[in-house]
């Protein structure tokens, strides 16, 4: 069939490539334009460095008691003083960074891994699968996270591994919810229909299309939850469930030091400030990430 076009007939014109825009560079630019976010990122980076370099930068052994110098005030020899067993508080904080970071990463990985898979499956298959999974998640959400992780930790017994597992489990619901909501909106879009049309399997659609497209808000949640997980570990350690005694953890240090709150406040304040700073930093980085990844704010910030 012939069709005389009124328009120019450049059907097979090969158009020039438009300039390439790097998503990564844009996010970096948005984030680095706010000083709180930069500040948070620096603290997070410091935490990571401290955690990995702890054995080299800590001035003293964090575990070995030195009964000749107990409960010392901050001095040049012990910048943050010593605790009831004569251990250097600064060294214990430096070594505690590794515990906090590890708990944060592992608990969030457990929560994220399980929560994201459950949410993906619930949202994608819908119907009864969605009902069963989401009702269980609703039930978990009804219990406040701290009592939940306390109960799980009590059930599994103390120790750092069990603390990580219990904190991880208590964080599952938020991931599941968020992922499920993301999937429910994305699965109606044309490109998912297109994936069905080209014959993609369910697994492929879930992993190759739904997961990458729902990732930005998950990334924000992961960052925010790092802070929450570290705080939860500190709370559990403070309550005596966390780490086994001689090892250093910030929560346990606050708990050990609060008996000397009036005579030697640095003892519990220093680890408390460390927790606060790290949690705050993770929250600020998470906040910055959210702003940078939110397409509605594109061009504003």
């Amino acid at each position: 069939m012939q069709f005389e076009s009124k328009y120019d007939n450049r059907t097979n014109e090969i158009t020039e490539a438009p300039p390439q825009v790097s998503e990564f560079r844009r996010i970096f630019k948005v984030m680095s334009s706010r000083w709180v976010v930069v500040f948070g990122a620096i603290i997070v980076l410091l935490l990571v460095l401290t955690a990995f370099l702890a054995p080299w930068i800590a001035p003293y052994d964090p575990i070995k008691p030195d009964l000749s110098s107990t409960l010392q005030q901050p001095s040049r020899a012990h910048l943050l003083g010593t605790d009831a067993l004569g251990r250097d508080v600064l060294s214990r904080i430096i070594h505690g960074a590794w515990v906090s970071l590890r708990v944060g990463i592992i608990a969030v990985s457990i929560a994220g891994g399980i929560g994201i898979i459950l949410g993906l499956v619930a949202g994608y298959f819908g119907r009864w699968v969605n009902n069963i999974i989401m009702r269980i998640i609703d039930a978990m959400m009804a219990i406040p996270p701290l009592p939940l992780s306390l109960a799980i930790a009590a059930l599994l017994g103390g120790g750092l591994t069990n603390v990580m597992i219990s904190v991880g489990i208590s964080l599952i619901p938020t991931y599941c919810r968020l992922m499920c909501g993301q999937v429910l909106t994305i699965k109606e879009s044309d490109y998912i229909t297109a994936a069905h049309v080209i014959g993609a399997s369910d697994i492929r659609i879930m992993l190759r299309h739904l997961l990458p497209n729902s990732f930005p808000p998950l990334l924000v949640l992961i960052t925010l939850n790092m802070g929450i997980a570290i705080l939860a570990e500190a709370s559990l350690s403070f309550l005596g469930i966390g780490i086994t005694p001689p090892a250093a953890a910030w929560g346990a240090m606050v708990s050990d030091g609060y008996k000397y709150l009036f005579t030697n406040p640095v003892l519990s304040f220093a680890p408390g400030v460390a927790v606060m700073l790290v949690v705050l930093s993770f929250n600020m980085v998470g906040d910055g990430l959210r702003d940078a990844l939110d397409p509605r704010l594109r061009g504003i910030i």
């Binding site: 044309d190 490109y191 297109a194 190759r208 990458p212 497209n213």
Partner: peptide, 12 residues
């Protein structure tokens, strides 16, 4: 598809 904006996976 009708909508050339919605029918391509933005992350692909």
């Amino acid at each position: 598809f009708q909508d050339p904006y919605g029918s391509l996976d933005p992350r692909q």
